[in-house]
Design a protein around this nucleic acid. Structure first.
Lengths: 327, 327
DNA sequence: CTGAAAGCGCTTACAG
DNA sequence: CTGAAAGCGCTTACAG
């Protein structure tokens, strides 16, 4: 591959000037600039970013760690992030940790040794020790960390959705349509908003919510099925992306039609939910991604960080899966 | 950040030895190795990969360019690719070109200047000139190129699915269930396989297929709708991922139930198709990704390339969306 | 507006 | 088993 010295020799300048030209240094005389560009074109010369990164001590690269690879939400985040970042000359390194703290730890080391500027990720740990170790490591590093869908650490920027608001909006919608016997599936940390909607109209959730976070898919399937048969709810509210599938699968097995036999409200929109006319609590994913990009870019210029936590508000998308019933 | 010299000083060795230790050079005495590792741990030292990359002239990084960002197929490819690559110490740079040749060209330059070892992508161009320019550029570069879902260039490895076989398998299935009046949507380059299935049983496709490649979503929607009303097919065969949505959307609008009112066979499996019990022509995505990884890794050792084209065979997944009807 | 020198943090022969 | 020297291809002061 051609180097800046090759270009310099043919252009009759020093490689310093070639370097300046490619960084669009205004001090380079226009005709010199043109000559350098022409020769570079002919030689197929492109500046070696690796060398540039080493010398300038910045890589213009951000690392993104994806914990839940099968959630289309992350595809959208990745897509938006990369597109926006690319417009500013940044690259995106991507890695999947399979929701495994050890794997995430390895990835973090790897990204650090790659000298990335920023890392966007959802911190994972098994216990307080691991949480502290991660904290000390982040503090000790000079990387800019951004928490995605998590705000475990106060000292680092965080970007989340207000899930309790989502649960509240969903419950309020179902209640307003006359539903009282609602089965909420998933969402341990979203109970507060859910309960609040009931309290507002002076009642209590008819049934305890289903805590389905830590179990296997099969167990969850059986629990949901049993709950439907036992409680005979008039509506199901899935409050997590995976729960959409699971709840829908149970309904299919029980041969229950939405919304004729039961109403259904989902969480996190996608194209099939749209086609199936299923109402959903949606999230402003683009806005969140945009906010992350701005934080990354502003860190570049400011360099002093005042960690902020940004929470985006979900919204209700009404379609045809929730029936209005007699109270 | 600590450097190898810091570690060397505290360990009482040269930075050369530190470098050797981290590359697990067996020549380093075990006790020296342990001392170096212990001190590195304390200092939080990790070798600077940027410097290492510059000196060793290899980056252990592969670039993946995604053209159709909204197709979940690419999420799966990305996921598998990254996971396998990471096990061998490789990193993944990802970029989206939005199916735009100019954007792809810029991304290629950017990946080249980042000195990636390999680039996995679907070559894009508007005309023969652009195709030739891309060819010359690839030939002139020392990057290892791998064509994804495309075999436009004979000189570079290609990884594709046998789409004509997919079309054949789908058509044969529908024919075997007694369907003759089939509406095929999408898939210009898949007509051969489709037609072959008809010829095998001595008939011709009842209606010309719908060529829907280049038009807008709205136009396609109208065309499919009109075709259904006009031809009154007993089955729809979507032969492209996007066409699944579009066809399903039309059926919803026409209030036609699958499979009672019309049979439906889709292309490219996903979780919702599974839940909706829709039969589909599936693709061995994992196998393709695995094959790409092996090609990348073997290039590392061999360095001489004999470009190969690998074609994976689709398969039929029977579910409940195709009705058996009287002939 | 341009150039010579130093150096980013490693790895690679070479020597012992 | 270990070290001193050179160099990967740039950018960054410094000098003019």
């Amino acid at each position: 591959m051609a180097t800046s010295k090759d270009v310099a020799r043919l252009a009759g300048v020093s490689h310093t000037t070639v370097s300046r030209a490619f960084r669009k240094d205004p001090k380079v005389k226009p005709e010199t600039y043109e000559r350098i560009m022409k020769i570079s074109e002919e030689l197929g010369y492109t500046p070696n970013q690796v060398a540039s990164n080493l010398r300038s001590q910045k890589t213009k690269t951000v690392g993104l760690i994806i914990s839940f690879g099968f959630n289309p939400f992350f595809l959208e985040i990745t897509h938006t992030l990369e597109t926006e970042l690319a417009r500013h000359g940044y690259r995106l390194l991507i890695a999947f940790d399979e929701d495994n703290p050890d794997r995430q730890w390895n990835i973090l080391q790897s990204l650090a040794s790659a000298q990335v500027n920023s890392i966007v990720f959802t911190p994972l740990y098994r216990d307080g020790n691991q949480k502290n170790r991660l904290y000390r490591w982040m503090k000790n590093s000079n990387i800019h960390f951004l928490q995605l869908i998590s705000n475990d650490y106060d000292d680092f920027a965080s970007f989340t959705f207000d899930d309790n608001l989502g649960a509240y909006l969903g419950a309020r919608h179902l209640l307003s349509q006359g539903h009282r016997n609602i089965l909420m599936v998933g969402g341990v940390n979203r109970v507060e908003g859910y309960t609040r909607a009931f309290e507002e109209i002076g009642c209590k959730p008819a049934f305890p919510y289903q805590n389905l976070s830590s179990e296997s898919k099969e167990q969850n399937f059986r629990k949901i099925k049993a709950a439907i048969l036992r409680q005979k709810p008039t509506a199901i509210f899935a409050i997590a992306y995976d729960m959409n599938y699971l709840a829908y699968e149970v309904l299919t097995e029980l041969n229950m039609k939405v919304p004729e036999d039961i109403s259904f409200l989902a969480f996190d929109d996608d194209r099939w939910l749209q086609l199936l006319r299923i109402s959903v609590i949606g999230h402003p994913i683009q806005a969140l991604a945009g906010s992350i990009v701005r934080e990354i870019l502003s860190y570049e210029t400011e360099n002093e960080i005042y960690p902020s936590s940004t929470s985006f508000k979900p919204f209700l998308i009404e379609r045809n899966s929730v029936l209005s019933i007699q109270v």
